[in-house]
């Protein structure tokens, strides 16, 4: 049995936490790793966008936004009917699952690259597009009346959170820059896997520490947190193959994006939009269960799904 090296770093992080090793990941390093990953993904997408700026991309963007709207609408009734979870918390969790995880996307990119599967390299644009619709749907589902001051904070969190800003910044720089960009690529491209490995080490530590927060509704949340990624992957894979006619790698990446759940942008937005929601439960589900599930189990299945779809037609 062979496991991807970067994925092993995630397991290593979880083991460090379980063994209660006296280690705190330096916060400044954590932010630096995240910054490099976001800009690297953005730059890669921007460089590709320069070559593929067509009307077809607009259609693909609309389809990707539609995925971000549909997934929370599926997650919400499951949480309400089967979970018996109140409206606010159901809306908050549903919003997490409609959005995306940059970490999961980065792992998928690393694995797909290592397998040599071709994909549409402007996917970073879709990561940015998928961050926002689920937040709006989540607020709509919660049916909360909002004050003007809160709304401006919420809009700021939605469109100007660090995740979106740095990835979008990288995307624009990659799209408009000349050949001089090659001089900075050793940092953002050459060191990508190493940075990702350290990022996953930290994620493993955090994910293992979040599991204890799943006491209430624990088993249901665990079942939901592994079920929704599969639903999302099927929707993403189907849209990627049947609607957008993407390459095998593109279908796999769209499945990964639809399967992943946010643990950075949406929690920040939900704290502002739905302050009464139990945020630790949604982050525990997203980061403690769905992220490890996608990294350890899901991604190979989504790649298999894409390969099966590509061979079927």
């Amino acid at each position: 049995m062979s496991i991807d090296a970067v994925v092993l770093f995630f397991i290593f992080g979880a083991v460090i936490r379980i063994l209660k090793v006296d280690f705190q990941f330096p916060e400044s390093l954590s932010r630096t790793l995240m910054l490099i990953l976001l800009i690297a993904i953005g730059l890669k997408g921007g460089i590709a966008l320069k070559e593929h700026a067509t009307f077809e991309l607009v259609i693909q963007g609309v389809a990707v936004i539609a995925i971000g709207v549909v997934i929370p609408l599926i997650a919400f009734p499951i949480l309400r009917f089967f979970g018996g979870i109140d409206t606010t918390n159901s809306a908050s969790i549903a919003a997490h699952y409609g959005s995306v995880s940059v970490g999961t996307f980065a792992v998928a990119i690393a694995i797909i690259d290592s397998l040599g599967i071709p994909y549409e390299s402007y996917f970073a644009l879709f990561v940015v597009l998928l961050e926002i619709p689920a937040i709006i749907v989540g607020i709509f589902l919660a049916q909360k009346r909002r004050e003007k001051g809160e709304l401006s904070t919420l809009i700021h969190e939605m469109f100007l959170n660090p995740g979106i800003v740095f990835m979008l910044g990288g995307l624009i720089i990659g799209a408009v820059s000349n050949d001089s960009i090659n001089s900075i690529m050793p940092l953002f491209k050459g060191l990508f896997s190493g940075v990702l490995a350290l990022f996953l080490l930290e994620m493993g530590i955090i994910a293992a520490s979040r599991l204890k927060e799943l006491k209430k509704n624990g088993l249901f949340i665990v079942a939901f947190s592994v079920f929704m990624p599969m639903v999302g992957a099927l929707i993403g894979g189907a849209v990627g193959h049947f609607v957008l006619s993407m390459s095998t790698g593109g279908v796999a990446l769209l499945a990964v994006l639809a399967a992943s759940s946010s643990y950075i942008a949406v929690p920040a937005a939900m704290r502002v939009a739905l302050p009464s929601a139990n945020h630790s439960m949604s982050i525990a589900a997203s980061l403690g269960v769905t992220f490890p599930f996608n990294v350890l189990v899901g991604i190979p299945i989504y790649i298999l799904l894409a390969q099966v779809l590509s061979q079927s037609l």
Binding site: I78, F81, F82, G83, G84, N217, L219, F220, V222, A223, F224, V226, F227
Partner: peptide, 14 residues
Amino acid sequence: MNNIRQLMFCSFVG
């Protein structure tokens, strides 16, 4: 587990 529906859902997914 408070709800039989939760149990049903978990069993179904399992």
